[in-house]
Amino acid sequence: MSGPKRFINDVKVSERHGAGEWLQERLSSLILIPLTLWGLWSGWALSGAGYDGALAWFRSPVNATLLAATLLISLWHMNMGLKVIVDDYIHRPASRGALLGLIGLVCVVSAAAGVFFIVRLALGSAPLPAGLGA
């Protein structure tokens, strides 16, 4: 299972996948610091702006891109965080596997649906369900 031990600066390199997950958690956190502050600012801009204000906001490519990035990186970060919580408290392998699968599914569906909505709003598409056979 484990290969030869490797060291960088006298610190042993992880033999399996733990270090990669650690790095992913830190990387996503780091990117989310500015994105969260931007999200706070956007929340201020969108509050009370109504439907027309929201549509105008989405037509800005900067807003649409940053929102998609915030959503995707948040869901990635959330998936890792919830996995750690489940690993901590759920010990029966079948329950743990089922919960992790459910959480993963919710994250993937949220990501796909969210990006779909953002792209439509950014392109100024007609309100749904137009274009979906209705």
């Binding site: 549509l55 959330m78 919710v106 649906a113 969210g114 779909f116 309100p127 369900p129």
Partner: peptide, 26 residues
Amino acid sequence: AGALSVGALFVVGWLAAAAFGRGAYE
């Protein structure tokens, strides 16, 4: 973290409401 996970679903719900038009958004 748990609350924010639910909050992420509210944000996706907000996106859906915006994409489904004025009535849904309001």
